[in-house]
Write a protein that binds this DNA or RNA. Structure first.
Lengths: 147, 147
DNA sequence: GTCTAGCTTGACGTTAACGTAAAGTGCTTG
DNA sequence: CAAGCACTTTACGTTAACGTCAAGCTAGAC
């Protein structure tokens, strides 16, 4: 429950115009931030989705890591497996020097995900209609129950 | 691969205005229809999501069962657990004589699912933007690769 | 110092959602 | 009637995604 930023002032010399966005996070911070456990975050690293630096033994996460975690969790909420997410993330990272086949494969995957999401959109639309219907009926029954 | 409706003509007497929608399905038909295995369908029954009639030992599915399976699979695609789906489905079935607390609970669950789906919609929107971005970059790199 | 909070690795446990194999039943088709 | 196919039950196996200890390191607070 205690919130303490991982980098307290530390009264260093040199606090000029430091690269503004160079903030870092501890594993616990990220865990609270996204409401997952530290175990989860370490597991994602083990699965190749994150690769934080180390200060000695301790993991240090930067902005890029945070974004990756965010995207990963979003992917999860949409039902993608960690393996799928990793595939895209890794290809994205290797993009600048990716060869043609890799890039073509990436485009395929993206097209797939797009189709997947189109379907999900449709599913959501339909499911919302169903829910509307069920709710309406439930309310009707409730109204009929004026004791 | 062979498709044969479960109720071949059977050359019975009496083929007048039979209750038009009284069609039934075998487990294999449903499986092919929704591209799941029969194991899956039996599993759903075991989990209380389906309750087909029996002709002897064999399961006979009617239109209502088919719809249930459809809704179940849609729910799955949206990331709901079988337990969640069952809860809604069972309450829906028990509705006419459901007591007030049950119905209130149902409304809660529905509100929850609604929130869930709102979030999914947002996730999809964001994810689509990400994908657009990644795809654009991939294409840029590909274009730069004119050998 | 020593105490605490938060970090580490390692390893086994757990749950959901099926897969898969074995062995038997029942219809219909040549 | 024998073959074949779709169906049945039983039961153990599998995979993903973590949970849950255990045991130990480390940096700052008192």
């Amino acid at each position: 429950m205690t919130q303490a930023p991982s980098t307290p002032p530390s009264a260093d010399t040199q606090d000029g115009p430091l690269p503004r966005q160079r903030r870092t996070y501890s594993i616990g911070e990220l865990a609270r931030m996204f409401e997952v456990t530290t175990r989860t975050i370490r597991f994602y690293e083990q699965e190749g989705l994150l690769a934080p630096e180390r200060r000695g033994q301790t993991r240090i996460y930067d902005e890029k890591d945070r974004v990756r975690l965010k995207l990963t969790l979003r992917g999860k909420r949409l039902g993608f497996s960690l393996a799928e997410i990793r595939e895209v993330v890794m290809m994205y990272d290797a993009m600048p020097d990716g060869n043609r086949r890799q890039l073509q494969r990436l485009l395929e995957i993206l097209a797939n995900k797009r189709r997947n999401m189109e379907r999900q959109l449709e599913d959501i639309r339909l499911m919302q209609l169903e829910i509307d219907d069920v709710e309406r009926r439930a309310r009707d029954v409730l109204d009929g129950l004026h004791d």
